[in-house]
Write a protein that binds this DNA or RNA. Structure first.
Length: 493
DNA sequence: AGCACA
């Protein structure tokens, strides 16, 4: 043994109440580490799954002598410290206390946040998730979603103990291969706790389930297969229709406020809710109508038109996968016209709250349950472009954890493609008014017809009274019913 | 197999 090697790690020799454990098994659970350490004293803190490989941990004893006794014991023991048969290396930490050992995801609760790594959203059906986690207790609710972190699921158990047992057993584990499509490689579960205590599931769908309420309606637009935008032979997208429109606003030289959106879209029917958000640097808005027909009318009439003269704020409309927006009733980016009383907002527990929770880690530390509230009045982080892919995997009955499971409640029904009448969804208009995306020479204006009747296509678009310059910024020029002949655009950019 | 950033 060279003196240099002794010097190399000399600094680790200073005793500390905190021990550094390394070479732990993959995603070793906190309980396993405690089991190893607690014979030597009282553990006051741990920090697990640290290091690049998440196979290290820190354990803080109440007393320095307890830490010394553990190090001393294994220094002289013929049997090394082991977890799951794997030798664990124990040294004094170079710090003397564990600070902030609990990240929010480590605060136990009855709802787990599960990240399924290495899969696409369509690879793991909600039935498979349910199957896997049901082995540990009754799964009340599941909500799945896609975020930057990947495909995730919130899984609600009855209590924190059940959730903890599932977490301890499955964190870092993989979903069995036979439950996955063949093309999926590794598929590790990364599990932490959610701050939620009760998920608000609005529909039984391919992405959310409430097993406590079998009578919950099935979201008609979220049935498997329905949401996947089919591509026809001509390459046109055939989206499922919806009562909610997704408006992308191109060339947004002027502010587009909730009020502006409301004004424009109210021409075709009652606008129930609006949410404005940014997506890939482009402003988009979700506009909710009471029914699909109204939305279709508005879509037909507004597609390709500009809110302002001069080719500004050009609208591109598609159907959202949403059917009922959960938005803050009054904010600068959203409006819920069905909730006149702001105090009602608390009762409008948005199912999107957990999405928001994912997007912005602003859950109050230690504060119980941000349940049912959109935190901070933020606009929910809608991600309408993430169109869920219909699971190609049909979960078959099988056994897992020694239990036999029935077939999934939802068979992958064939997409009722015929129900989508939209055959002219091409982004490029074939009409005379060739609204060049880059060089809009002729102004196409929003035609507002309060009756909503006989919406005009882009080719027969009437014009607004004037350019935004004449009207001042921020106010679209709307002339109800004042249909001018086509080609009479007064503004030439 | 060698130190934490939530």
């Amino acid at each position: 043994m060279s003196t240099s090697s002794q010097h190399q790690f000399r600094y680790t020799q200073t005793p500390s109440k905190v021990l550094h454990l390394r070479n732990l098994p993959w995603e070793c659970a906190e309980e396993e580490i405690k089991e190893l350490c607690k014979p030597f004293g009282k553990i006051v803190n741990t920090k697990c799954n640290v290091g690049a490989n998440r196979n290290q941990a820190f354990v803080e004893f109440a007393d320095l002598n307890q830490a010394i006794s553990m190090v001393s014991y294994y220094a002289s023991s013929s049997e090394p410290a082991q977890v799951r048969g794997k030798t664990v290396y124990i040294q004094y930490s170079n710090r003397h206390e564990i600070v902030n050992n609990k990240s929010p995801g480590d605060v136990p609760g009855n709802v787990l946040l599960v990240t399924i790594e290495g899969v696409e959203a369509g690879d793991v059906s909600i039935d498979v998730i349910h199957l896997v986690f049901s082995a540990f207790g009754f799964v009340h609710k599941i909500a799945t979603f896609e975020k930057a972190a990947g495909f995730q699921a919130l899984i609600q158990f009855s209590d924190a103990d059940t959730a903890a047992s599932a977490r301890n057993a499955l964190d870092g584990r993989s979903i069995p291969r036979y439950l996955l499509p063949e093309h999926v490689g590794s598929c590790h579960l990364r599990i932490s706790y959610s701050a939620h205590t009760d998920l608000n599931i609005k529909f039984q769908s391919h992405r959310s389930r409430d097993y406590t309420n079998p009578y919950l309606p099935v979201n008609p637009t979220a049935i498997e297969g329905m949401v996947q935008p089919a591509v026809g032979p001509d390459g046109k997208k055939k989206e499922p229709e919806s009562n909610v429109l997704l408006a992308s606003i191109e060339n947004m030289q002027y502010a587009v406020t909730v009020d502006v959106i409301h004004t424009v879209f109210s021409a075709f029917g009652t606008v129930q809710k609006i949410a404005i958000f940014e997506k890939n640097g482009q402003t988009q808005a979700l506009v909710q109508y009471p029914d699909v027909t109204t939305a279709a009318t508005a879509r037909e009439a507004l597609e390709g038109h500009c809110i302002y003269d001069g080719g500004f704020c050009k609208l591109h409309l598609s159907y959202s996968r949403h059917t009922d927006l959960n938005v803050k009733a009054f904010s600068d980016k959203s409006r819920d016209y069905t909730v006149p009383d702001p105090s009602m907002l608390a009762a409008q527990a948005p199912a999107a709250a957990w999405q928001n929770f994912q997007a912005s880690p602003m859950y109050p530390g230690g504060s119980p349950a941000v349940q049912g509230q959109v935190p901070g009045g933020q606009v929910p982080s809608w991600d309408p472009t993430v169109q869920a892919v219909a699971p190609s995997y049909a979960s078959a009955p099988g056994t897992f954890h020694g239990q036999t499971y029935a077939a999934p409640a939802y068979s992958p029904a064939a997409m009722p493609a015929a129900s989508s009448p939209l055959s002219h969804t091409s982004p490029v208009s074939h009409n005379a008014n060739s609204l060049g995306i880059t060089q809009p020479r002729v102004q196409q204006n929003v035609n507002v017809q309060p009756s909503g009747a006989s919406p005009l296509g882009p080719g027969s678009s009437p014009v607004m009274e004037s350019s935004p310059d004449a009207q001042g910024l921020g106010q679209p020029t709307l002339r109800p019913g004042g249909a001018s002949p086509p080609g009479q655009a007064p503004y030439h950019g």
